Computed example of a mutant assay.
Amino acid sequence: MRTRQLALALLPTLLLPACVSTTTTTRTWGDPYAQREEWVRYGRVEQVRETVQRQQGDPAAGAVAGAIIGGLLGAAVGGHTHYDRWGYAHRSGDAGSAVVGAVGGAVVGAAASSGAAEDRFYEVFVRFEDGGTETYTYRGALPFQPGDAVTLTPRGLVRG
């Protein structure tokens, strides 16, 4: 009986990763007319690369996983125990509880897997007047465009 309960407890961890997928796309912008400045740590943005990472839930997979988990838990919780003539206990699941658990699990699983999330990252490639190049990464909003004059300060990269 303990093995069955352990299997029921571990089943969600095996099924839930199948409910979400992640995709990543990348775009790069460049300025062919980027100029070099002549003073140290002044530079110009040469390129900007946008990376979009999306996580999309799969409601169908969530519904299936929820139905399986709910059905198994419903059968385990809603079952009954009977004793044979030698006094040994036998537990059997209840089909009605399994169906109710499966339907409830499918609804919850589909709702939990239906969301989507998106993150945007920008890599800003800067060429400094001394010929050096560095890359700076920003999350959310794009702070610079190709061709923007920038200055590296102790606070970071700023326009100018």
Rank of each mutant, 00 (worst) to 15 (best):
T25K: 08
A116H: 13
Q35I: 02
R139S: 07
R120Y: 06
V52Q: 15
A65T: 03
D94C: 13
A60R: 02
M1P: 05
V124K: 06
G87Q: 06
V64D: 01
T22E: 15
W29E: 14
D119V: 09
T81L: 07
Q55M: 12
G105S: 10
Y138S: 02
L6N: 04
V77A: 14
Y88T: 13
H80A: 15
R127V: 14
L152P: 05
T26E: 12
G96T: 14
A95S: 05
I69Q: 08
G109Y: 05
G93C: 14
V48M: 10
G71E: 11
V64Y: 02
F125S: 06
R49G: 01
Y88K: 14
R27S: 09
A7C: 11
C19S: 07
I68N: 06
A9T: 10
R159G: 09
G140V: 06
Y88E: 15
G79E: 06
A61D: 00
A117L: 02
A34M: 09
E37T: 13
R41F: 10
C19W: 00
E134L: 02
E37F: 13
T151R: 08
G79T: 11
A9I: 13
Y136A: 05
L8R: 12
P17D: 03
E50Q: 12
A76V: 11
G109P: 10
V100K: 10
L15M: 07
Y122K: 00
H80G: 15
P143G: 04
Y33A: 07
G30K: 05
A117V: 00
E123W: 03
L152E: 04
A67L: 08
R91M: 13
L10H: 04
A89Y: 10
Y122R: 03
D84T: 08
R85H: 12
E123C: 00
H82C: 01
V99A: 15
T3A: 15
G93T: 11
E50M: 04
G160I: 02
T28A: 10
S92L: 10
P59H: 01
D58I: 11
G105K: 12
A110K: 00
V40D: 08
G96Y: 06
Q55Y: 07
F144N: 04
R44N: 07
G147H: 07
P146R: 00
T23E: 11
L16D: 01
C19V: 03
A34D: 05
R27V: 01
D119Y: 05
G101R: 04
R155H: 06
G43I: 07
G101A: 13
D84E: 09
T3L: 14
P32F: 01
F121M: 02
E50S: 09
Q145F: 06
G93M: 09
A75Q: 10
A111P: 07
L8F: 14
S97A: 15
G115Y: 08
T26V: 08
V158S: 01
P17Q: 04
V108L: 15
R139N: 02
L72H: 09
L8G: 02
R49C: 03
T26W: 07
R41Q: 10
V77R: 13
S21T: 15
A65E: 03
V20K: 07
A67C: 08
T51D: 09
G57M: 04
P154L: 01
A65D: 05
L15P: 03
A95D: 03
G140M: 00
Q35V: 01
S21C: 03
